[in-house]
Amino acid sequence: MKLEMKDQPGQLVAALKPISAVGGNIIAVIHQREATTPAEALDVQIVLELPEGRLERLLELLRDQGIDVVRIGEERLLYECTLIVIGHLMHTDLSDTVNQIDKTGSAEVTELSMVMPAIDSPSSARITIRSTTRTEMKRAIRILRAVAKQKELLIIEPLEDA
């Protein structure tokens, strides 16, 4: 989920403590300057993972710290899984492979590194998929497996879930 607040001096530090107190896990802190806000006040977004049912308590703790939460964002792309794919990735239309995952809407390929050793020899790519839920991640991996089978690619999956 995503919390948005005004970045007034000291607020960020004050916000981090309650998050860990309720067992949350901070994934990213994003500052952004919006045209509509006065120049001195930055918007801060904190992307975090929170155990089920702790949101109310967190908001309470944040209020106690005098932090003004402007908006609570929906859960979004919290799960991450990195796989390696080997095969004739270009000949078999890599962007189509990526598309098949992206078009699910709830999972997307967020990173891709590819190494092509020589024309006509198989290339290797590392693909990072992010999804909103664990179930969606499983679905995205199932899609990738099916595509790999059809295109004769070898997928190497991680031993442990992300």
Binding site: I84, I86, G87, S113, P122, L159
Partner: peptide, 21 residues
Amino acid sequence: TLLSPEALQLAEDQDCTIRLI
């Protein structure tokens, strides 16, 4: 048999490796 040194390097870049499990 189809594993490439590049795939092992891509794993290595993330402090991982590849094993037959």
